[in-house]
Amino acid sequence: MEQKFIATSAFWELFPEAEIAVLFADNVSNQSYGKIPKDLLKQANDHAVKWVEEDPISANPVIKDWRQAYQKFKTKKGARCAVENLLKRAKQQKGVGAINPIVDIYNSVSLEWAFPVAGEDRDFLQGNLELTLAKGGEKFVPISEDSTEEALAGEVVYKDAKSVISRCWAWRDSARIQVTEETKNLIFYMENINPKRKADHNQAVQLLQKRLKDYLGIEASAVLITKERPEISF
Protein backbone atom coordinates (compact mmCIF):
# COMPACT_ATOMS: atom_id res chain seq x y z
CA MET A 1 0.00 0.00 0.00
CA GLU A 2 1.41 3.39 -1.01
CA GLN A 3 2.32 5.74 1.79
CA LYS A 4 3.35 9.39 1.69
CA PHE A 5 5.58 11.80 3.54
CA ILE A 6 3.66 15.08 3.68
CA ALA A 7 4.65 18.46 5.07
CA THR A 8 1.34 20.27 5.31
CA SER A 9 0.49 23.86 4.41
CA ALA A 10 0.11 24.69 8.11
CA PHE A 11 3.79 23.84 8.60
CA TRP A 12 4.93 25.91 5.60
CA GLU A 13 3.01 28.92 6.85
CA LEU A 14 5.33 28.96 9.85
CA PHE A 15 8.54 27.84 8.14
CA PRO A 16 8.42 28.63 4.41
CA GLU A 17 12.21 28.35 3.98
CA ALA A 18 12.69 25.05 5.80
CA GLU A 19 13.98 21.99 4.00
CA ILE A 20 13.73 18.39 5.12
CA ALA A 21 15.91 15.69 3.64
CA VAL A 22 14.04 12.38 3.72
CA LEU A 23 16.02 9.16 3.24
CA PHE A 24 14.86 5.58 2.77
CA ALA A 25 16.65 2.25 3.20
CA ASP A 26 15.22 -1.25 2.76
CA ASN A 27 16.11 -4.75 3.97
CA VAL A 28 18.87 -3.59 6.29
CA SER A 29 20.70 -5.44 9.05
CA ASN A 30 21.23 -3.53 12.28
CA GLN A 31 22.68 -6.36 14.35
CA SER A 32 26.40 -5.87 13.72
CA TYR A 33 28.72 -2.89 13.99
CA GLY A 34 30.36 -4.01 10.74
CA LYS A 35 33.06 -1.53 9.75
CA ILE A 36 31.98 1.27 12.12
CA PRO A 37 35.12 2.73 13.74
CA LYS A 38 35.19 2.15 17.48
CA ASP A 39 35.89 5.83 18.06
CA LEU A 40 33.20 7.16 15.69
CA LEU A 41 31.07 8.73 18.41
CA LYS A 42 34.04 10.00 20.40
CA GLN A 43 35.36 11.81 17.35
CA ALA A 44 31.89 13.16 16.56
CA ASN A 45 31.44 14.43 20.11
CA ASP A 46 34.86 16.10 19.99
CA HIS A 47 34.03 17.66 16.61
CA ALA A 48 30.65 18.91 17.82
CA VAL A 49 32.13 21.33 20.35
CA LYS A 50 33.04 23.77 17.55
CA TRP A 51 29.32 24.51 17.08
CA VAL A 52 28.83 25.60 20.71
CA GLU A 53 31.99 27.45 21.73
CA GLU A 54 30.08 30.50 23.02
CA ASP A 55 28.52 30.79 26.48
CA PRO A 56 25.67 30.56 27.20
CA ILE A 57 24.83 27.83 24.72
CA SER A 58 21.93 29.92 23.39
CA ALA A 59 24.46 32.46 22.03
CA ASN A 60 25.68 30.03 19.36
CA PRO A 61 24.10 30.53 15.90
CA VAL A 62 22.91 26.94 15.37
CA ILE A 63 21.25 26.94 18.79
CA LYS A 64 19.81 30.42 18.29
CA ASP A 65 18.20 29.32 15.00
CA TRP A 66 16.26 26.54 16.69
CA ARG A 67 15.42 28.54 19.82
CA GLN A 68 13.84 31.19 17.59
CA ALA A 69 11.98 28.54 15.60
CA TYR A 70 10.54 27.04 18.76
CA GLN A 71 9.11 30.43 19.73
CA LYS A 72 6.80 30.26 16.70
CA PHE A 73 4.66 27.37 17.95
CA LYS A 74 3.33 25.77 21.12
CA THR A 75 5.88 23.58 22.90
CA LYS A 76 6.05 21.53 26.04
CA LYS A 77 7.84 23.51 28.76
CA GLY A 78 11.59 23.08 28.45
CA ALA A 79 11.48 21.37 25.05
CA ARG A 80 14.55 21.96 22.90
CA CYS A 81 15.55 20.72 19.47
CA ALA A 82 17.27 17.33 19.67
CA VAL A 83 20.44 18.72 18.12
CA GLU A 84 20.75 21.21 21.00
CA ASN A 85 20.62 18.33 23.46
CA LEU A 86 23.35 16.46 21.57
CA LEU A 87 25.61 19.51 21.29
CA LYS A 88 25.07 20.43 24.93
CA ARG A 89 26.20 16.98 26.03
CA ALA A 90 29.28 17.25 23.85
CA LYS A 91 30.09 20.70 25.27
CA GLN A 92 29.75 19.37 28.82
CA GLN A 93 32.00 16.39 27.94
CA LYS A 94 29.09 14.02 28.58
CA GLY A 95 29.22 12.77 25.01
CA VAL A 96 26.48 10.79 23.31
CA GLY A 97 27.06 7.06 23.77
CA ALA A 98 26.39 3.99 21.65
CA ILE A 99 22.79 2.78 21.16
CA ASN A 100 22.84 0.56 18.07
CA PRO A 101 24.74 0.72 14.76
CA ILE A 102 22.28 2.77 12.69
CA VAL A 103 21.42 5.19 15.50
CA ASP A 104 25.11 5.69 16.24
CA ILE A 105 25.78 6.55 12.59
CA TYR A 106 23.05 9.16 12.33
CA ASN A 107 23.95 10.61 15.73
CA SER A 108 27.54 11.00 14.55
CA VAL A 109 26.36 13.00 11.53
CA SER A 110 24.06 15.12 13.68
CA LEU A 111 26.92 15.97 16.02
CA GLU A 112 29.40 16.77 13.27
CA TRP A 113 27.07 18.94 11.18
CA ALA A 114 24.69 20.31 13.84
CA PHE A 115 21.45 19.24 12.16
CA PRO A 116 18.74 17.17 13.88
CA VAL A 117 18.53 13.67 12.38
CA ALA A 118 15.81 11.13 13.16
CA GLY A 119 15.59 7.53 12.09
CA GLU A 120 12.38 5.52 12.31
CA ASP A 121 11.32 1.92 11.73
CA ARG A 122 9.11 2.23 8.67
CA ASP A 123 7.36 -1.09 9.28
CA PHE A 124 5.55 0.41 12.27
CA LEU A 125 4.27 3.45 10.42
CA GLN A 126 0.51 3.45 9.91
CA GLY A 127 -0.67 5.41 6.89
CA ASN A 128 1.04 8.62 5.87
CA LEU A 129 3.81 10.36 7.79
CA GLU A 130 2.94 14.04 8.23
CA LEU A 131 4.87 17.06 9.44
CA THR A 132 2.10 19.36 10.60
CA LEU A 133 0.51 21.24 13.48
CA ALA A 134 -1.27 19.20 16.12
CA LYS A 135 -4.95 19.73 16.76
CA GLY A 136 -4.31 18.97 20.42
CA GLY A 137 -4.75 15.75 22.37
CA GLU A 138 -2.92 13.43 19.95
CA LYS A 139 -1.23 10.62 21.87
CA PHE A 140 2.54 10.24 22.22
CA VAL A 141 4.71 7.75 24.13
CA PRO A 142 8.36 8.89 24.33
CA ILE A 143 11.32 6.56 23.92
CA SER A 144 12.40 5.01 27.25
CA GLU A 145 9.17 6.00 29.00
CA ASP A 146 5.86 4.26 29.70
CA SER A 147 3.74 7.36 30.23
CA THR A 148 1.43 8.65 27.51
CA GLU A 149 1.54 12.36 26.68
CA GLU A 150 -0.77 14.51 24.61
CA ALA A 151 0.35 17.02 22.00
CA LEU A 152 -0.62 20.66 22.42
CA ALA A 153 -2.87 22.46 19.96
CA GLY A 154 -0.61 24.24 17.49
CA GLU A 155 2.47 22.17 18.31
CA VAL A 156 4.64 21.16 15.33
CA VAL A 157 4.68 17.35 15.22
CA TYR A 158 5.42 14.38 13.03
CA LYS A 159 2.49 11.98 13.13
CA ASP A 160 0.95 9.04 11.34
CA ALA A 161 -2.60 7.69 11.38
CA LYS A 162 -2.16 6.24 14.88
CA SER A 163 -0.24 8.74 16.97
CA VAL A 164 2.43 11.41 17.23
CA ILE A 165 5.87 10.17 16.19
CA SER A 166 7.90 13.20 17.26
CA ARG A 167 6.79 15.97 19.61
CA CYS A 168 7.84 19.62 19.38
CA TRP A 169 9.10 19.06 15.83
CA ALA A 170 12.56 17.66 16.50
CA TRP A 171 12.53 17.18 20.26
CA ARG A 172 11.66 13.59 21.21
CA ASP A 173 10.71 10.51 19.19
CA SER A 174 8.08 7.87 19.82
CA ALA A 175 8.93 4.49 21.28
CA ARG A 176 6.52 2.87 18.82
CA ILE A 177 8.70 3.33 15.75
CA GLN A 178 12.19 3.65 17.21
CA VAL A 179 15.09 1.99 15.41
CA THR A 180 16.15 -1.25 17.10
CA GLU A 181 18.45 -4.15 16.24
CA GLU A 182 15.43 -5.80 14.60
CA THR A 183 14.64 -2.91 12.26
CA LYS A 184 14.60 -3.84 8.55
CA ASN A 185 13.11 -0.86 6.71
CA LEU A 186 13.99 2.71 7.55
CA ILE A 187 13.01 6.31 7.03
CA PHE A 188 15.31 9.14 8.13
CA TYR A 189 14.71 12.87 8.13
CA MET A 190 17.14 15.74 8.64
CA GLU A 191 15.83 19.29 8.97
CA ASN A 192 17.41 22.62 8.08
CA ILE A 193 15.78 25.93 8.97
CA ASN A 194 18.56 28.32 7.95
CA PRO A 195 18.74 29.10 4.19
CA LYS A 196 22.41 30.06 4.62
CA ARG A 197 23.18 26.45 5.60
CA LYS A 198 21.86 24.76 2.47
CA ALA A 199 25.33 23.61 1.42
CA ASP A 200 26.05 22.28 4.90
CA HIS A 201 22.74 20.43 4.90
CA ASN A 202 23.51 18.80 1.57
CA GLN A 203 26.94 17.69 2.78
CA ALA A 204 25.44 16.25 5.96
CA VAL A 205 22.94 14.22 3.93
CA GLN A 206 25.74 12.90 1.72
CA LEU A 207 27.81 11.99 4.78
CA LEU A 208 24.90 10.04 6.26
CA GLN A 209 24.50 8.13 3.00
CA LYS A 210 28.24 7.47 2.80
CA ARG A 211 28.55 6.18 6.35
CA LEU A 212 25.53 3.92 6.03
CA LYS A 213 27.03 2.43 2.85
CA ASP A 214 30.68 2.27 3.92
CA TYR A 215 30.08 0.90 7.40
CA LEU A 216 26.94 -1.22 7.05
CA GLY A 217 26.48 -1.71 3.30
CA ILE A 218 23.19 0.21 3.36
CA GLU A 219 22.09 2.10 0.25
CA ALA A 220 19.89 5.03 1.29
CA SER A 221 18.04 7.12 -1.29
CA ALA A 222 17.34 10.78 -0.47
CA VAL A 223 14.65 13.31 -1.44
CA LEU A 224 14.50 16.97 -0.42
CA ILE A 225 11.13 18.21 0.86
CA THR A 226 10.50 21.94 0.40
CA LYS A 227 7.51 24.25 0.18
CA GLU A 228 7.62 23.71 -3.59
CA ARG A 229 7.78 19.92 -3.18
CA PRO A 230 5.87 19.22 0.04
CA GLU A 231 5.21 15.48 -0.36
CA ILE A 232 6.59 12.24 -1.74
CA SER A 233 5.29 8.67 -2.03
CA PHE A 234 7.18 5.69 -0.71
Rank of each mutant, 00 (worst) to 15 (best):
D104H: 00
S166L: 15
A170M: 09
V96D: 04
D121C: 07
T132G: 02
P142D: 10
A90E: 04
E155S: 11
N128R: 03
F140M: 09
T148S: 13
W171F: 14
K159R: 15
I177W: 08
V164S: 06
E150P: 02
D121Y: 04
K94W: 06
A170D: 08
A134K: 06
S108L: 07
E155M: 07
D121M: 08
P142M: 11
E155T: 06
K94I: 09
D160H: 11
G136R: 11
T132N: 05
V141K: 14
W113C: 00
D104V: 00
I105M: 02
E112T: 13
D160M: 06
E130W: 05
S110D: 01
I165E: 10
S110E: 14
D173L: 00
Y106Q: 06
V109D: 07
V96E: 13
D104G: 02
R176S: 11
P101S: 09
V109T: 10
A170K: 01
W113F: 15
V179E: 15
D160A: 07
A175G: 00
V156L: 11
K91N: 03
E138A: 12
P116D: 08
V156E: 08
G136Q: 12
R167Y: 05
S174M: 03
E112R: 08
W113P: 01
R122T: 02
D104W: 01
T132W: 06
R167P: 01
A175T: 01
I102G: 14
V156K: 12
W169K: 06
P116A: 03
N100W: 05
Q178C: 11
F140Q: 04
Y158I: 01
D123C: 00
G137F: 14
A114P: 03
I105Y: 03
T148H: 06
E120L: 15
P101G: 07
E155N: 11
G137K: 04
G136L: 14
L131H: 06
G119R: 00
A114G: 04
E112W: 01
R122Q: 05
A175Y: 00
A170W: 04
I105V: 10
E120V: 05
G136K: 15
V96M: 13
I102N: 05
C168Y: 13
P142R: 13
Q92P: 00
N100E: 15
G95K: 01
E145D: 07
L133R: 10
N107M: 04
V109F: 06
C168H: 15
A98K: 09
D160S: 05
A170S: 12
V179M: 14
V179S: 14
Q178L: 09
D160K: 10
G136I: 10
P116Y: 10
S166H: 09
E149F: 12
A90R: 02
I102P: 08
F140E: 11
A153M: 11
K94D: 12
A114M: 11
Q92G: 05
A118N: 04
G136T: 12
L131Y: 08
P142G: 12
I105W: 06
Y158F: 13
D121T: 04
C168R: 07
I99N: 07
K159M: 12
A153W: 08
P116F: 03
S174L: 07
E150N: 13
S110R: 10
F115E: 02
G127P: 10
A153P: 15
Q178Y: 09
Q178D: 08
F124H: 13
T132M: 02
L152G: 09
